[in-house]
Design a protein around this nucleic acid. Structure first.
Length: 279
DNA sequence: ACGTGCTCCTGTGTGC
DNA sequence: TGCACACAGGAGCACG
């Protein structure tokens, strides 16, 4: 290894993903939008990328929003809804790389896909580099969730309900956790995190776990989401004992047991600690 | 009813 | 310097 090899091998923060909107991230988005955009008259709607619109065109979105105000927010899984005073909700899904900008958005940013301008000069923008996000209208978020075939929000499931979902599944525990039709909100990153903290082998069949493991799964899911939201889902502020900042094959386990391993399922990379996750 | 693999999409890093 | 390719992963789809 030469000097250049040393330089390029300086570890960049692994697992740092500025945009990976899963349940905790979307909850942070929701709170920010609730803090900053309510009760302000919508003056203009600028659709910069119609590809994000689902079931509505630019004109329809403009008619639904213009002159109205946002009056409240809700979240279901990874979907965020903003109540529109004229009726209905604006539903936002951030795909893999999306996020809302509520401060002074850099409007020249070419990744800005939607700008909602308020009459007081403020704005709400949707930024989405990879254009996998979605903007839609619905009567309410429950109606949208039903139409989209989403299961209950992951946080709304009690221990017995989560156990029920797992016991009825014939798939893997990680795939079931990420199945938005069973429970909505878990993505690749947080599914790995919850399984790591619950000490469950991600390759296990969902129905094969013992009762204690289901309880751990439920408890850890809630705890992981709560702490992540408290810390604005900012990986840099999450506990260093979490897997999320150690998503790299061969690095030491953040809990001090062996090494983190990469595995693949369904074309997706996952990470786990074989020494910790033996349940 | 599962998993797998492909597609959408853009940006980054790596190998030749 | 460029070209090809893998990878990132949310979600929907065809396939076996």
């Amino acid at each position: 290894m030469n000097v250049f090899g040393l330089i390029v091998s300086i570890p960049r923060p692994t697992g740092y993903h500025p945009d990976m909107p899963e349940l905790p991230d979307v909850e942070v988005f929701r709170r920010r939008i609730a803090r900053t955009t309510l009760h302000r008259e919508i003056e203009r709607v600028q659709v910069r990328d119609p590809a994000l619109l689902h079931g509505v065109d630019a004109g329809g979105l403009e008619r639904a929003l213009q002159g109205s105000t946002f009056e409240g927010t809700s979240r279901h899984g990874k979907n965020l809804a903003v109540d529109v005073s004229g009726g209905g909700v604006l539903v936002l899904h951030f795909g893999m790389t999306g996020h809302p900008e509520t401060e002074e958005p850099g409007l020249s940013d070419r990744h800005v896909r939607l700008v909602i301008g308020f009459s007081d000069g403020g704005r709400l923008a949707v930024v989405d580099q990879r254009r996998l996000g979605r903007v839609a209208l619905a009567d309410d978020l429950g109606e949208y969730a039903a139409r989209a075939g989403l299961g209950p929000d992951a946080l709304s499931l009690g221990p017995a309900a989560l156990r029920g979902v797992m016991r009825e599944s014939r798939g893997g525990v990680k795939a079931t956790l990420m199945d938005q039709g069973q429970l909505a909100g878990m993505g690749n990153i947080y599914a790995d995190e919850v399984l790591f903290q619950a000490r469950i082998d991600p390759r296990a069949q969902a129905a094969s776990l013992d009762e204690v493991a289901y309880l751990r799964l439920h408890r850890r899911l809630h705890r992981v989401v709560r702490i992540a939201v408290e810390r604005d889902a900012d990986p840099g502020r999450l506990p260093r004992t979490w897997l999320i900042t150690h998503r790299e094959d061969g690095v030491p386990c953040p809990r001090g047991n062996g090494e983190v391993r990469r595995f693949r399922s369904g074309g997706r990379a996952g990470y786990w600690c074989p020494a910790c996750q033996d349940g």
